[in-house]
Design a protein around this nucleic acid. Structure first.
Length: 842
RNA sequence: GGGCGGUUAGCUCAGCGGUAGAGCACCGGCCUUACACGCCGGCUGUCACAGGUUCGAGCCCUGUACCGCCCACCA
């Protein structure tokens, strides 16, 4: 027993995190079988970003569950991952070093980044760029790990993984090749959502809508038969050269006579048909729309379902491509005029081309009336700055549309906390409008493990795929060459060429259970950890990470990846808005932990229930800090006088333990349902009552050296042991500190408390609650009559339970500084108390 | 437009069929053999609104309003 004279919270984080590390307190015991393992699919944070309060919030929730399960006797498999793959890392490296990746620059083995980021950025080769990404992410990961350790995450730090690591690249490539072999992945040249700044395809899950100013332009299309004009409204007049048809609703009597007839596009003189399609909305604009290849996703649907030609004009960089009018693709009744007009638009960005074409339209009187400004929603890549275009390109897809029903069923087979988050998942699956595009035209990521044969004429034969043997993975097709070829044949007629693309970051993240559990790498580990028990994550990535993980496990393993999904909420500003990045950076997580203490910050986080958006509240952290300090002091008090100790015989002691038994039961039930907030509430309420009422009532009895003192000591120590363990998942540092004063080993490896430990205590907690009520009544009288505790008083009581009174009378009288025998009216209808001071000299 | 949450004391939230709760804040008191980083006491509510079910409704049903989020919406 070694209780400090002045216990304090300062320094506990450093002390215990290094001790836990040295003792391997959280090491995963991989000798356990699946039934005795609890495995957690931890979200790998993006290391190129900065951690903010939201991370601290949600990772604390997961850690509470991990600690609880560990105390329940499970071998907790709780690895931490780093998401260092993909665009965010590229951006960070570009800004940090002042470089940009240019694949045409040759590799420089002696390259070192400039001391100061140069302007303009220095162009570097892809291998040099990737090396910089790797260097910087390693540094970022150290900072992240330091923060997580300080927060007290009970991660097994020997098991970290990174989404760009060789293991992750191998798993990504292997899983991709398996999909390809099964026909679940395919390559297609098709219209795809495209970010013109990043010059990459993006997936449906990465879209967001933003409100943008726009304008309706009413455009007249002359009828081919000369019988007047048809007017359409468009916000994108610059796409008139890409127009392939007009479309109206089949039931729209205004336009029915036009179906099958042709109109002539203004300026360019292209005859295009008027076609019916049910997606056309008679209420929008003039009720008839122009179909361009491609202005939006509806255009793609119309183009496909009406078998229209392609007349694409937007290039990968967002400018209009030069076109030869009068050719097969771009027919015109006046090719010369079309060419002259179009040449003034070619190579302009869409926005500039729009301004230019408005001038042309005005000159030719094809613009009807005024341009009407509107605000409308436009699709953006979530990380992008300009609206997405639709560009036809060759991309890799994973089949999702075929599996929607099965994926809904998978969602129903898992348990969701909170349950309503399942609806979001179903909404997403039901709203899918195409297969998952997994290829990105970027540099830092997992390459597709594919080469193509080069024909004798030097063109690439995308149908003649060459794939590596699984044993060779991971490979980089830009530096490795396929079996049966020599490196010199790269890009040469009769040779080969590597697939230039990398995978979407979610194509790797979706394999996190595969990566951590040892799929196709460590069969023994796999058998002990998969399917996993828990996927904790935030609700904003249900459509990406959660969905894609379910998909991959379904396609590859015909299994759920995990049985439980715990969805955490967001941290909100006090004004109820999502905590913004700027504000999140002002309040840095490390600053918070240092100011309030890790336990205090964890306490605040634990108060936010599963899936509940929670206000950032430093006040709650202060409360948490007070709780931790109270634990130190109350424990010191209980443990400072520990003898005599004996059987718990006193009714008040027995009733207290009986009450605690209820608390254990409630806290356990709550944690089983992932409701750590409810578990904390009941534990905390009991603890404060224990301190303020129980300890106060028995401290004098405890001061003696008789059987009553032995009972009080026995009960107090039992209660303390139980409470420390109930608090341990939320407050790992202070509970460990106190535990170390009098118990061997770590509280975090001790057994979660059970009713069995408290069995034999009283069979009724009534004496405990009643004693608190009587005490409160006496205290109220003292307060009203301004008689401090140190003034001895006589008491008159009413409504006290006749049978109960003798058992608790002594504790109550001593504990409230009451002298003499109280007068009691046992039959009074309600509890009453009246006091009279006793003169000190009386 | 479709969907999901939420609306309870000044603030942050719990309660989800049986007499309205906690913490914070505020006010008053107290150095009481752990803790003044403490302790005691007090004040505060047409439980968003309107109907309905029920002996009884923050709690169940219907509708409305507002807040947040997800999805759809580029003619």
């Amino acid at each position: 027993m070694s209780v400090p004279e002045k216990p304090a919270l300062e320094g506990l984080e450093t002390k215990w995190q290094s001790r836990w590390d040295a003792d391997a307190t959280y090491a995963f015991d991989r000798t356990q079988s699946r039934a005795d393992v609890y495995s957690i699919d931890t979200p790998p944070p993006t290391v190129s970003g900065s951690l903010h309060v939201g991370h601290v919030f949600s990772y604390t929730h997961t850690d509470i569950v991990a600690r609880y399960q560990r105390m329940r006797g499970k071998a907790v498999f709780y690895p931490m991952g780093w998401d260092d793959n993909g665009l965010p890392t590229e951006r960070r490296v570009q800004n940090y070093y002042g470089v940009r990746c240019d694949p045409s620059v040759p590799f420089d083995p002696n390259f070192t980044p400039p001391a100061e980021p140069p302007k303009p950025p220095l162009a570097v080769s892809r291998p040099n760029f990737v090396a910089l990404c790797t260097t910087l992410t390693v540094e970022d990961e150290k900072i992240f790990e330091h923060l997580w350790r300080h927060l007290g995450l009970s991660v097994d730090w020997s098991m970290t993984y990174a989404t760009i690591s060789p293991v992750s690249r191998r798993i990504s490539q292997l899983a991709f090749l398996r999909l390809l072999a099964k026909g679940q992945s395919y390559q297609l040249e098709a219209p795809t959502l495209w970010d013109i700044d990043f010059r990459t395809a993006v997936a449906q899950a990465e879209l967001e809508d933003r409100e943008m100013p726009g304008a309706y332009h009413r455009i007249a299309f002359a009828r081919e038969d000369g019988a007047g004009a048809v007017e359409i409204d468009t916000t994108r007049p610059e796409l008139i050269p890409a127009c392939v048809a007009l479309v109206a609703h089949p039931d729209d009597t205004r336009y029915q006579p036009l179906f099958g007839k042709h109109v002539i596009t203004p300026l360019f003189g292209v005859p295009v048909p008027v076609r019916p399609h049910p997606l056309a909305d008679p209420e929008k604009g003039t009720g008839i729309a122009m179909i361009c290849t491609f202005g939006d996703l509806t255009d793609v649907v119309w183009w496909r379902e009406l078998s229209l030609p392609v007349r694409a004009i937007i290039q990968a960089n967002g400018t209009l491509k030069p076109i030869a009018w009068g050719s097969a693709g771009f027919p015109s009744i006046d090719a010369a005029a079309a060419q002259a007009r179009y040449d003034t638009m070619a190579n302009l960005t869409a926005a500039r081309a729009r301004a230019r074409i408005v001038e042309l339209l005005k000159e030719t009187a094809a613009l009807v009336g005024d341009i009407r400004p509107i605000t409308h929603h436009v699709k953006f890549y979530e990380k992008g700055d300009r609206p997405l275009e639709i560009v036809t390109s060759r991309q890799w897809f994973v089949k999702t549309m075929d599996h929607r029903g099965a994926l809904i069923d998978r969602g129903r087979a898992m348990r969701w906390f909170p349950a309503h988050m399942q609806t979001r998942y179903e909404n997403w699956v039901n709203g899918l409008n195409g297969d998952w595009c997994i290829s990105r035209q970027r540099f830092f990521g997992v390459p597709f493990p594919v080469w193509y044969k080069v024909r004798d004429d030097g063109t690439t034969d995308h149908d003649a795929r060459l794939v590596p043997d699984e044993a060779q993975l991971p490979i980089d097709p830009s530096t490795d060459h396929p079996a049966g070829y020599r490196e010199e044949q790269r890009g040469k007629p009769g040779g080969f060429v590597g697939d230039p693309d990398i995978m979407d970051t979610w194509a790797t993240s979706s394999l996190s259970p595969f990566i951590v559990c040892g799929w196709e790498r460590d069969q023994d580990l796999w058998a002990r950890t998969f399917p996993m028990d828990l996927r904790p994550q935030a609700h904003d990535i249900i459509r990406t990470w959660l969905f894609s993980t379910v998909l991959r496990a379904h396609l590859e393993l015909n299994s759920l990846p995990w049985t439980n999904a715990a969805i955490s909420g967001w941290v909100l500003d006090p004004d109820r808005k999502k905590m913004s990045k700027s504000k999140g950076n002002v309040v840095t997580p490390m600053g918070l932990l240092e100011e309030h203490g890790s336990d205090a910050v964890r306490y605040w986080a634990a108060k936010g229930g599963p899936g509940v958006d929670t206000a950032f509240d430093a006040g709650q952290m202060k409360v948490g800090r007070r709780l931790a300090i109270k634990l130190l002091n109350a424990s010191k008090f209980v443990l400072t006088k520990i003898t005599p100790i004996g059987p718990v015989t006193e009714p008040l002691d027995r009733a207290m333990l009986r009450q605690l038994d209820d608390v254990v039961r409630q806290a356990t039930e709550a944690l089983q349902a992932y409701d750590y907030a409810a578990a904390l509430r009941v534990t905390e309420a009991f603890f404060w009552g224990f301190c303020d009422d129980y300890i106060e009532l028995v401290k004098r009895r405890r001061g003696r050296d008789d059987a009553g003192a032995a009972s009080a000591n026995g009960a107090a120590q039992t209660a303390l042991s139980v409470m420390l363990r109930l608090f341990a998942p939320v407050l790992p540092f202070v509970t460990e500190e106190v535990w170390s004063w009098w118990q061997p080993g770590s509280v975090h490896r001790s057994a979660w408390p059970t009713s069995a430990e408290l069995a034999g205590a009283g069979d009724d907690a009534h004496a405990y609650t009643r004693a608190s009520e009587i005490t409160a009544a006496i205290r109220q009288q003292r307060s009203e009559r301004k008689l401090g505790f140190s003034v001895p008083v006589r008491v008159t009581l009413g409504g006290v339970d006749r049978a109960l009174w003798p058992a608790i009378a002594r504790d109550l009288l001593e504990g409230n500084n009451v002298v003499g025998d109280p007068q009691i009216d046992f039959d009074a209808p309600a509890l009453t108390a009246a006091i009279e001071p006793v003169a000190a000299d009386a």
